[in-house]
């Protein structure tokens, strides 16, 4: 039960984080379309780091 609540909290946190990353990247690309490639790569890296954190917490909570 508690680990399910924990998993929900992790997903909420990760969702907020991913939303921030994705949203800011979109803004950045809209302002400077020629830098889209670089922004995308950086976005994926930060997304992956966040994902690692969230998955780590999920695995530990299991």
């Amino acid at each position: 039960m508690y680990n399910l609540i924990g998993a929900g909290l992790i997903v909420i946190g990760g969702g907020i984080g991913l939303g921030q990353i994705g949203g800011k990247a979109m803004e950045g690309i809209a302002r400077q379309p020629e830098a889209a490639g670089k922004i995308q790569t950086a976005m994926i890296i930060i997304g992956a780091l966040l994902e690692g954190l969230a998955f780590g917490a999920l695995i530990l909570g299991k």
Partner: peptide
């Protein structure tokens, strides 16, 4: 390394 291995495995 832990985040590397967990990411791939969990995904």
């Amino acid at each position: 390394p832990f985040s590397l291995l967990i990411r791939l495995f969990a995904n």
